[in-house]
Amino acid sequence: MRFRNLAELVAVAEQEKKPMYEIMIEEHVNETGQTREQVIQTMTDSFDVMVASVQRGLTEDIKSFSGLTGGDAKRVYEYAQKGKTLLGKQATEAVAMALSTSEVNAAMGLVVATPTAGSCGILPGVLSSLRESLGLEKEQLVLGMFTAAAVGYVVANNASISGAGGGCQAEVGSATAMAAAAAVELAGGSPEQAIQAAGLALKNVLGLVCDPVAGLVEVPCIIRNGFGSVLALAGADMALAGVRSVIPPDEVILAMYNIGKQMPVELRETAMGGLATTPTGKKIEKQIYGDELNEA
């Protein structure tokens, strides 16, 4: 790889006068020896799985294995079709589609981890929404996935994309930063604007803990995916308007890493704190497992 952080990625992209997704594709070809066509085909296959998971949650009656979640994606989508939403139709649809993929995930359905399964709704939500608002073709959206991958690559290698490692900021936060950068490049913004969007979006979820009720990837994960999609779009809009993160995006990633290390184990995907240990959280846990989980 010709880059280890976002600043180096932008430097390469600017020097070669290419979008970040082009750099990421070139690096992939170089790293794996596959052809450009093969690499793009693999990403297109993932895109197709993503679209199918979005559709499934909007058309089928999804119920998670625990019975705790499902159906909210449909609710929000139908509400968006009535046209009078506070966020506007397309942002509300992004929420619906993010919820949709996450609900399918909780039902042990087929999804693409972007970068994780717990945060698998955000990128599909944002891409699906952009498809409509910007009138983009599938081929362009697939390229945007490489932008997202480039940002995710930097975050994963310099910080963490694991809730157990760094809390929800490492999962929903990383996904939001990735989607924000993809949105900027798909909207025609520069590589510099794309990483600013990633930095701005990630800043807003710093400190977010991973506190899954009953240890399930359901509450609060699904709803946080819905919010993440809107946050990514907002970050992209701010960056496209020229807003810059005063703390450089690479330093935001470093801050995320350090916060994750400082986070107590109870708040890193162990179901031992936060929402998981609220009276209702404990009650749900008991309903699902009896006392089994605590013995483990």
């Binding site: 594709i25 909780a106 994309i161």
Partner: peptide, 20 residues
């Protein structure tokens, strides 16, 4: 680096609910 390329980030295609 532990994560080497695009499909370490976008992917795997998987049965839910948790990548890790």
């Amino acid at each position: 680096s532990s994560f080497r390329h695009s499909f370490d980030i976008i992917g795997p295609v998987m049965i839910g609910p948790s990548s890790s």
